[in-house]
Write a protein that binds this DNA or RNA. Structure first.
Lengths: 201, 201
DNA sequence: GCGTTCAGGTGACATTGTCAAGTGAGTGCC
DNA sequence: GGCACTCACTTGACAATGTCACCTGAACGC
């Protein structure tokens, strides 16, 4: 079976989603895939290899989601905004990936001999879009750096709060309420930026 | 030794800080505290008990940091802003606590027989401050809810990005650069909110 | 003096990640 | 055809881990 690797990955992501990263066990994953406890080892080298592969797939998906969203927009701020919504929605719908992607104790993105290019790509997209919006005159009272960091922080923040279920502690969350919340936050920030735009824009 | 409990907690927090949550082992913690492998068990019931205690201390510290900061401010928006800075700086300087506090797979805040009141308190402070700023006329084009969520998301986002070292992947970070970055992001958002204020404010 | 609680220790168990070594099917090559 | 070699696994062992059951003293109430 050539797709054992994918099968193992799917099982691992499902486990992260259901019970958190800690529940991902080499042997449990093998059991779910119906193979011996060493089969995963063969494909991923060691335990962290699995997490790394999950992160890799996650960053690839995230970058694509952001790019797709930005491409369809017809205004630099709108592109940044839509990409932000895509970021948060990717996190929501890929909680298993997202939980692994941003924990450096689990995955070292900057491994000197094998850096995760997918993460670089996603990061690059973010920076490019923020720069575009700033050049177009949005968020004029901020530096490009500040604009970039504020946008990233906000989008990343709402993503983690949702993925970790922190917001669900106060009010029960449904798929659609979460989606609305993302819109509220990202478009809200976008509106603030639009209000702080140069006269030319 | 009556302070063994605290000793164990300190050792655990240090471990989380150094190597992530996964490195926290009941036995390693006991070893560092110089006691038998069952001594921690006696104080915390089980493995998650330790994490829960870490989160409890973390939320208490976070709530206090925010309240202290807000008290010293003389303007509702300034109070919200300063509390936000305090939030992020608490995260930076208590990475061990922070990593545990917001992972629901590790700590169930809403345990039905023993909810974490400290978390409620911290959350309450945040909501109170956001409401205050909104009532004072800041962020008028947003609902109170949107304002609250945007502020929380932004502050929480920059916190997690810093604590997980995500931002350090691009540019090397020092203590002071991180502190500046927090100011940049939180005060930047604050400035956007101030620009979007009612004429009365 | 005696039971009870508190604070911790010993020993055992199944389970985990990892290492070492095997197996068997396929493939290239003479 | 024969043979070395790689690939995709399997089996078996190891130390380490969380947890369970049980033991040990010291302090305390009465």
């Amino acid at each position: 079976m050539a797709d054992l690797r994918q099968k193992i990955l799917d099982a691992s992501v499902a486990l992260v989603e259901e019970q958190g990263v800690r529940a991902v066990s080499f042997r449990e994953v093998a059991r779910r895939a119906g193979v011996s406890h060493q089969a995963p080892y063969h494909h991923f080298g060691n335990y962290r290899g699995i997490l790394r592969a999950i992160a890799q797939g996650g960053f690839a998906g995230l970058a694509q989601a952001m790019n797709d969203a930005a491409e369809r927009a017809d205004d630099p701020l709108e592109a940044l905004t839509d990409a932000g919504v895509a970021y948060a929605n990717f996190a929501r719908t890929h909680a298993g990936h997202f939980r692994v992607m941003f924990q450096r104790a689990l995955v070292d993105i900057r491994d000197r001999e094998d850096p995760l290019e997918e993460a670089e790509a996603a990061h690059g997209t973010l920076i490019r879009l923020a720069q575009g919006a700033h050049e177009a005159g949005f968020g004029t009272q901020l530096t490009v750096d500040a604009l970039t960091h504020i946008c990233w922080a906000t989008v990343h923040g709402i993503s983690t709060l949702l993925v970790e279920g922190v917001l669900a502690e106060k009010t029960p969350m449904s798929e659609s309420i979460e989606a609305e919340l993302v819109q509220q936050v990202v478009r809200g920030l976008s509106a603030l930026l639009r209000k702080d735009s140069a006269p030319s824009a």
